[in-house]
């Protein structure tokens, strides 16, 4: 698990290699720590976590800006609201 500040207001959460429930739990915890308007780049490779994260963001109102998927790796950008 890697959580880094890439630049001002831009964070990276790398949970590659983790299976459920870790990616969605770490995402939740990371988003809780961000300030509104800040952005989180999320990298994970467990497809089933994606469904949960999407619904979770829908519930909390956080905005998923884009979802990229390449050879089993998912890179999403989420803006905290």
């Amino acid at each position: 698990m890697k959580f880094e500040k890439m630049s001002e207001g831009h964070y990276l959460l790398d949970v590659k290699g983790y299976v459920c429930p870790h990616p969605q739990l770490y995402t939740k915890k990371a988003l809780e720590r961000l300030k509104p308007g800040e952005m989180l780049e999320l990298q994970f490779d467990n497809p089933s976590s994606g469904e949960s994260i999407a619904t979770m963001c829908d519930n909390t109102g956080d905005e998923i800006l884009d979802r990229k998927q390449e050879a089993g790796l998912f890179v999403w950008h989420v803006r905290k609201t």
Binding site: C20, P21, Q24, L25, K28, P47, S48, G50, E51, S52, I53, T55, M56, N59
Partner: peptide
């Protein structure tokens, strides 16, 4: 992405009722 464990777990952990 059928996962019985997430059915209950995601409810408690992240509040997602999907599964």
């Amino acid at each position: 992405r059928f996962c019985f464990s997430s059915a209950f777990r995601d409810l408690f952990a992240v509040g997602v009722p999907r599964m």
